[in-house]
Amino acid sequence: MTTSKNITDRLGQVVVASTTGFTAHCHELYQAPPLGSLVRCGRDDGVVYGVVAGITTESLDPSRRPMARDAKAESEDEVYANHPQLTRLLATRFETLSVGYRDDVGLHRYLAPLPPSIYSFVHLCSDGETREFTESLESLSVLLNAPNAPQDDVAAAFLRLASTTHSDPRAFLVRAGKELAVQLIGQSQRLNGILRRLSR
């Protein structure tokens, strides 16, 4: 299993926290995990799980907007090489939707009673953790009903990523699809859209 690569990958720290989700600031520019990834923050006695629902890279200082530079540059990398300060003026943040937590009792796939604290470390979940978390798919309803999030894309991305951690990805997706079909009764267009994303 390829867990060793991911397991200690620390992505960043929590900078905004609420019961329904948290926002993390990446330690390094552009180092956000892909949309739909399962991440975790907090210590052993209180882990909160989130699914990446949005990623933003912007100026650290809201009053200073980035502008186009180096019209003659051959490549984008050259732009960053010419202006090393850019990596410090820009910041990548990602927002997550809280989908569960773990306490001394065990794993729960619903909202944690308290949000994580600011500066909590955020890690990408290992394959094993992701597989365990997605053994059951109650948390899908959070993704499908989240306000201000591209719900269907997040849900599809989450399932597709999670499927690779299961021994039979296809069977996992079929099971997930059936769960979606139940959750999206009466919304066949949405269902069809998500299923199409999953089937690719």
Binding site: R170, L173, V174, G177, K178, L180, A181, V182, I185, G186, Q187, S188, Q189, L191, N192, L195, R196, L198, S199
Partner: peptide, 26 residues
Amino acid sequence: SADRNLGAAPPDTSDPFIAQVVSGTT
């Protein structure tokens, strides 16, 4: 069908994956 609108937006069951999902649920 669990969905009265199914006729208006039928799932693309030519896709075997979708067919498998829809069967027994929607």
